[in-house]
Design a protein around this nucleic acid. Structure first.
Length: 471
RNA sequence: UGCCGCAUAGCUCAGUCGGUAGAGCAGCUGACUGUUAAUCAGCGGGUCAUAGGUUCGAGUCCUAUUGCGGCAGCCA
């Protein structure tokens, strides 16, 4: 067997009369007297291939093993379908059963199951309609990310996953250490195992100092941009926050472009162009999957996505947003005033009710943003931007970076951070500094937006959240 | 981490005032010459999350624990 094959999606393009073999997994089988129908999927497209089996063509024992979940190859001839539902189907002349799936125990059924249940069988849910569609869209979105940046001359760079600097002083981090010995037997309980700490001295650790899984590749990406001009990263990111919500993961994928010779305006333009182009790519390449999401998951999905592609994002300063919020009749749980960090309820009101499409908020008070953001001339705000989207909230966070050595040094100290770990970051401003800007996009949040899926755990094959690292 | 909700058949759920366990789907057996979440008939399927408590009697009320989910904080 060779990896080259005719995928199900290609079989739909073949002319009637063509002989072909279809490989895949069985969704359902329906029997009538003298004829059987099998829905076959190989994950190459949303639509299943219908296999038609006349009585006597396949021996009865083998046919009986063609149950939901079984893996098979059907050989046959492409024919025009006399019934509604599909243009062509495969009239079987023979088959091979690769792997049966005991119907008494196979957990998937043709009728829908809850997403919560499917998370428990995440290794099998890819065979269902919803998750096949999610992962096909995920693949196309990843491809669109690379294509977008490569078309514009951005270099793909890989930043470290293990880092010894607490990059932004924000967000709980996972420690990486070789000072722990695992699987040490517990004295009074022979079944239990524990960790043993070999040393408490960070100097004796693998890297000679405390190290962590990265929470962002931004700082390193900045160094690459000040040499390659335009760069982007696309890799895993880790947050040890004990947050259990429908939009947080402990391990997620982030896209982080960084551009030399760029200001906040250019950063916003890139973010908007980026979201539009990735969404357009999905619309153009995942039509069947989106149709399903539109029908079963999020009724307004297609309309919303097309609207986003064809209209300009609303751009507001933080100060303007506060004015709108203060003028709103809506009762908020948290008070709104200039200087307050916007809460989820505020962001949701702005993007869902006030504007009704993505909004870019800019120029936040410096107190509520990170140290590296470029200060404005008013001395009170920084050149930050957040892109907020209906349903999911913050999808992009970015800023123009502070490129002035003295100002940055001062900000680090003002925020109570140590200077020493940032020596190389400060060096960037000391030698050949350039105005530059960038942003971070949560890839899974983008996927929630384009699929309409309500829980971030359902747009990644195997989610990592507090208390959950199965598979 | 805080607040709230849920836990009953393989799955999705119902279960009234505390009175001894139900449905649909799935599975199994059969029927039907073209089905599309096929249809029709029949059959099997339960430690009501766990541990205590109240009561003559608990799926139902109380407490604790565990798991899952939602919201908030944090963020992408």
């Amino acid at each position: 067997m060779d990896y080259r094959r005719t995928y199900v999606k290609d079989i739909f393009q073949l002319s009637p009369g063509t002989e072909v073999s279809a490989y895949g997994w069985v969704k359902t089988r329906r029997d009538s007297k003298g004829i059987s129908f099998v829905q076959l999927s190989d994950g190459s497209c949303f639509q299943d291939l219908q296999i038609v089996i006349d009585a006597g063509v396949i021996d009865e024992t083998t046919l009986k093993a063609v149950t939901t979940g079984a893996c098979v190859r059907f050989d046959g001839t492409v024919v025009e379908s006399p019934a509604a539902g599909q243009a062509v189907e495969l009239k079987a002349t023979g088959m091979e059963l690769f792997g049966a799936a005991d119907p008494q125990t196979y957990p998937l059924q043709k009728k829908g199951a809850s997403f919560e249940f499917l998370r428990e069988i995440a290794h099998l849910r890819v065979r269902g309609n919803t998750f096949g569609a999610v992962y096909r869209v995920r693949n196309q979105a990843a491809w669109a990310v690379h294509k977008f940046f490569q078309d514009r001359g951005f270099s793909y760079v890989n930043t470290p996953i293990i880092t010894a600097s607490d990059a932004e002083g924000a967000g709980a981090m996972f420690a990486v250490t070789s000072l722990l010995e695992a699987g040490v037997p517990v004295e009074d309980n022979p079944e239990a195992h524990a960790f043993r700490l070999k040393s408490t001295n960070p100097a004796e650790d693998f890297f000679g100092k405390p190290s962590y899984l990265t929470v962002s590749g931004q700082l390193e990406a900045e160094t690459m941009a000040l040499g390659l001009t335009n760069v982007y990263t696309f890799g895993p990111t880790f947050r040890a926050e004990n947050s259990s919500t429908s939009r947080h993961l402990a391990e997620f994928w982030m896209v982080e472009p960084e551009m030399a010779f760029c200001d906040l305006e250019g950063d916003m333009n890139l973010a908007e162009e980026f979201l539009k182009e990735v969404i357009k790519h999905i619309l153009d390449n995942c039509a069947g999957d989106l149709e399903f999401f539109n029908k079963r998951i999020e009724p307004e999905l297609l309309q919303t996505l097309e609207h986003v592609v064809n209209s300009d994002f609303e751009r507001l300063t933080y100060t303007e947003a506060i004015k709108y919020l203060e003028a709103s009749d809506k009762k908020f749980e948290y008070d709104v005033y200039w200087g307050a960090d916007l809460q989820s309820e505020h962001e949701r009101w702005l993007t869902e009710e006030k504007v009704g499409r993505p909004v870019i908020l800019t120029d936040y008070p410096k107190e509520i943003k990170a140290f590296y953001m470029r200060g404005n001339e008013d001395g009170k705000t920084v050149r930050a931007m957040d892109v907020l989207a209906p349903r999911i909230g913050e999808i992009i966070g970015g800023s123009q970076r502070e490129e002035r050595y003295d100002v940055l040094r001062h900000r680090i100290q003002e925020m109570g951070l140590p200077l020493e770990p940032y020596w190389w970051y400060l060096d960037l401003r000391k030698y050949g500094s350039a105005p530059h800007a960038g942003f971070g996009l949560g890839f899974e949040r983008l996927l929630m937006y384009v699929t309409g899926m309500k829980n971030i755990r359902d747009v990644i094959p195997y989610h990592r959240t507090p208390g959950q690292a199965d598979f």
